[in-house]
């Protein structure tokens, strides 16, 4: 009994002594921090996703006080930018909301299968092993590395084995873009509604035989809207959404170009 009491007292005394020393030192060695940094840190969503280009929300708050643009937070969007603007005394410019888009339509039915992958169920592992069994070397692997990376539950592998983004939940943080070993996911402005949903750079013959919905680089779409689309590495590339003729989308033989609703 006595030793219990004694230990409590001793540890308490040691603890008190050091806390006293630390609190004195804290007063003496206090570093003045701009109070705005703390306020902005409180306003930021705290997701620490890194979409703004800084390691975390606290770092971004520090950078804002030193003059970084206030509209980089895609998670908080306009609302957060306005609140930060109030603190900093500047009007926010428009935050262009970006969302992740999966640029692949080669689901389990539409892709052509070469074999079966029996390894670790992860996209990164399957990519190292040469793919998940689909003949296409560019498309979605469907093991959901992006799903695991998403802190908001916005991207999911659907029943057909293809990653799918819910654009209402997606904050455009870009973590899935980094997680995807095949770079199938890309961040696009939400108002860009015409997309080439394929990233295959294979020549038309090969991409045609490996997936029913691949961009085969035929160039029909380019003919219909030469100022809106260009052909690059056997792949249609959108230059200007405004100048895309609807015919381009309709004429695509594989349906690789899509207009989103």
């Amino acid at each position: 009994m006595e030793s219990i009491l004694l230990s409590i007292l001793t540890m308490g005394a040691i603890g008190l002594f050091f806390s006293a020393v630390i609190s004195v030192a804290y007063q003496k060695l206090k570093v003045e921090v701009d109070p705005r940094v703390e306020k902005i840190t409180d306003i930021l969503p705290g997701a620490n996703c890194g979409a703004c280009g800084f390691p975390g929300c606290a770092n971004y708050a520090e950078a804002i006080v030193q003059g970084a643009p206030i509209n980089k937070c895609s998670v908080g969007g306009m609302a957060v930018a306005e609140l930060i603007g109030e603190i900093m005394g500047i009007a926010p410019e428009d935050v262009v909301r970006k969302v992740a888009r999966v640029l692949c339509q080669g689901d389990n039915e539409k892709a052509v299968w070469a074999g079966e992958y029996m390894g670790i169920p992860s996209c990164a592992a399957a990519n190292l092993a040469g793919g998940a069994g689909k003949l296409c070397n560019y498309g979605c692997l469907g093991f959901g590395d992006c799903e695991k990376a998403c802190p908001f539950g916005a991207i999911k592998v659907n029943a057909r084995g293809l990653a799918e983004v819910d654009e209402n939940i997606c904050t455009g943080c870009g973590l899935c873009v980094q997680a995807c070993p095949r770079n199938v996911i890309s961040l696009e402005p939400i108002d860009k509604r015409v997309l080439v949903l394929c990233v295959s750079k294979d020549p038309g013959k090969i991409s045609k035989s490996s997936c029913k919905v691949a961009c085969i680089g035929c160039g029909l779409c380019v003919k219909k809207s030469p100022e809106g689309i260009a052909l690059e590495n056997n792949l249609a590339k959108i230059i200007d959404v405004e100048k895309i003729n609807d015919e381009s989308i309709e004429k695509c033989p594989t349906g690789a170009i899509r207009k989103l609703e």
Partner: peptide
């Protein structure tokens, strides 16, 4: 551990 933690706090502040 208590001692080390306190000392590190001091060094960090310093």
């Amino acid at each position: 551990i208590l001692i080390i933690a306190s000392l590190v706090q001091l060094v960090e502040m310093f």
